[in-house]
Simulated assay, not measured.
Amino acid sequence: MATEAAHGAEMAHGAEHAAEGGSLVFHPMDQFIVKPLFGHGDVGMFTITNVTLWLAIAVLAIIGLMVLGTSKRAIIPTRSQSIAELAYGFVYKMVEDVTGKDGLKYFPYIMTLFLFIVFANFLGLIPMSFTTTSHFAVTVVLALAVFLTVTILGFVKNGASFLGLFWVSSAPLALRPILAIIELISYFVRPVSHSIRLAGNVMAGHAVIKVFAGFAAIATISPLSVVAITAMYGLEVLVAFIQAYVFTILTCVYLKDALHPHH
């Protein structure tokens, strides 16, 4: 197994091309292999991996922007302070618009989620980096944290009346039990869709870029591949922000349901 991990590590450095019977061979999914940061061997629960490294870099980048970048608090803001203030205002307005004034007390948690996903997505676009949000192990934890937080908050705030979220009182009485079952199923599917949407979009975009990079080795189509890579990279920059925004605004919607569960 250690041999296979070492082989995968070598392949993950780039799309390796080989002429085998006239066909082009490359491995676009090797960039998502989790590898030990030090040495070789199996990845255990406490192994420091490339995922660990880039998660730590994302956290340090957030601290650098939000703490060090705003430490002077100048009247005429620096670039880092301006970015921090824009991010703060953007998320604050989102929380206020979706959840109302009641949800603003949970703004720090939502702001942290947004910044972490944004930085993890953008850091993953750096060549030779690792995209942590392309792994379901990361996005599932984020989604489950939101799901459990919102569910516990709903019962703490509303008690048994939180179950009113599943009872569509505006529907005809005969349809309400059926709709309640549908609402209950959709509620428990939330963390699945919440996590898959983020990881799936990020993984797909990076895989497509790697495929185009593989074709760039062929001289006849190399110019087209370079154009395609440039276009896809620009699209991935947009996707990196949009997916962070979608994850965050869905968190706000779920929070609103916990605070105001009645249909």
Rank of each mutant, 00 (worst) to 15 (best):
L37N: 11
F247V: 03
K210L: 04
T49F: 11
K101N: 08
F147H: 13
H260M: 07
L198P: 08
F212L: 07
G89K: 05
W167F: 12
T131P: 05
V118L: 15
S225E: 02
E85T: 07
R176T: 05
D30N: 10
T139R: 03
F188W: 15
A217H: 14
P28D: 02
I185N: 07
A18K: 14
A213M: 08
T151C: 05
T251F: 15
F147Y: 15
A15Q: 12
Y245G: 03
G22S: 05
G69E: 02
A174C: 00
F26H: 11
E20F: 09
L173M: 14
I181T: 13
A219C: 00
T139D: 05
A56C: 12
T49Q: 06
A9N: 06
S193I: 09
M29I: 02
L24D: 04
A180W: 08
I209M: 15
A228G: 09
I249C: 02
M29W: 13
V168C: 04
G22V: 01
V25S: 07
A171N: 09
Y245E: 04
F114H: 14
V43L: 03
M11I: 05
S169C: 00
M29N: 09
S170W: 10
M29S: 12
A74M: 10
T112K: 12
R190S: 15
A240C: 10
D102L: 12
T131W: 00
A207L: 13
S222R: 14
S134M: 01
E4S: 11
I249P: 06
P191C: 09
S23P: 00
T248W: 14
G64K: 03
A120I: 00
A207D: 02
G154A: 09
Y109H: 07
L165C: 01
A12Q: 10
I110N: 02
S225Y: 05
V211E: 10
F26N: 04
Y106D: 07
T99R: 06
G103Y: 09
L235D: 06
A240I: 01
I182P: 02
P223T: 06
F215H: 10
L142Y: 07
P172L: 04
L115C: 15
T78V: 00
S186H: 03
G100F: 11
F38T: 05
F241T: 01
S161Q: 11
L163R: 06
M29E: 14
S193K: 10
Q81D: 08
L153I: 06
P28N: 02
H40R: 09
V202R: 15
A174K: 08
